[in-house]
């Protein structure tokens, strides 16, 4: 059984059709990178997978639970889906430890000692065991994002979703976050990563999915999709991303 099964997913915002029939199935332990130009619907796709956006049509099944079923307890289902946001979204009124323990205690009803033990173990995992008592504003962007990853991991998720996790970071801080994600992938975590980091996609992903205009244009192993794409749209996009300086003014926008 697949960890994530998406069938004919559609999403419209008013008149705007953002997702136009996405079919995607992701195996347990698989790392999938979703790439594509901005406005292609890749973030919306990811946000639909834990129902932060309500799909307009189609079904989504995660870890055997059909999220799109109106009778499903969405709060219970979301506990099994970790999400990491572009803008970190740490809780600024809580310490690092508070950020990582709050949902364990209020949602999973773990006692304080147990929650803190799990939190410390996961902060260790992302290399921030020494920042436990700090408030988020004292941390760099890269550190904040790693806390956000630890916060999601503390819930023991079956899958992890990453929505452009490094796009808001200074370039020199990107490596730390990608390193943590690579570690997770090596441990066998099922991951869906929306990203512009082509080197990460090439080295870590089992599969790369290229989206444009609300549909999956092509997908396959990174060697094939990134190194020798079949579709013209994929080629144009990759040329732009891999060598941004080569673009000319007035070239067709991707």
């Amino acid at each position: 059984m697949s960890a994530i099964e998406i069938r004919d997913l559609r999403k419209t915002f008013g008149e705007l059709e953002v997702l136009r029939g996405i079919d995607l199935s992701i195996e347990s332990g698989e790392v999938v990178c979703v790439i594509g130009p901005s406005g292609s619907g890749k973030s919306t796709l990811l946000r639909c997978v834990n129902l932060l956006e309500e799909p307009s049509g189609g079904t989504i099944t995660v870890d055997g639970v059909e999220l799109t079923d109106p009778d499903v307890d969405i709060d219970a289902a979301r506990r099994r889906i970790g999400m990491v946001f572009q803008s970190f979204n740490l809780f600024p009124h809580l310490t690092v430890l508070g950020n990582v323990t709050v949902a364990q205690r209020k949602v999973l009803r773990r006692d304080r000692a147990e929650a803190e033990r799990v939190a410390r173990a996961n902060l260790e995992r992302v290399g921030l065991a020494d920042k436990v008592e700090e408030y988020p504003e004292k941390l760099s962007g890269g550190q904040q994002q790693r806390v956000a990853i630890a916060r999601a991991l503390a819930m023991d998720p079956a899958v992890m979703l990453f929505d452009e996790p490094t796009s808001a970071l200074d370039p020199e801080l990107v490596g730390d976050v990608l390193g943590v994600m690579r570690g997770l992938a090596d441990e066998g975590m099922t991951m869906v990563v929306v990203t512009h980091e082509m080197s990460f996609a090439r080295e870590v992903a089992d599969r790369v999915v290229f989206m444009d205009g609300g549909v999956v244009v092509e997908q396959g192993p990174p060697d094939r999709v990134i190194a020798s794409p079949e579709h013209e749209r994929t080629r144009t996009f990759l040329a732009r991303v891999l060598d941004p300086a080569a673009a000319r003014v007035g070239e067709v926008d991707v």
Binding site: L52, N89, P92, K106, V107, A148, M155
Partner: peptide
């Protein structure tokens, strides 16, 4: 309070009420 705060809380499995009470209202 930014919408991302509610989204982060909901993505951790908190109900709307719990997210309001524990994350949004204190801020």
């Amino acid at each position: 309070v930014p919408r991302g705060q509610t989204e982060a809380a909901r993505s951790l499995g908190m109900s709307q009420f719990r997210a309001m009470r524990t994350i949004v209202i204190p801020q």
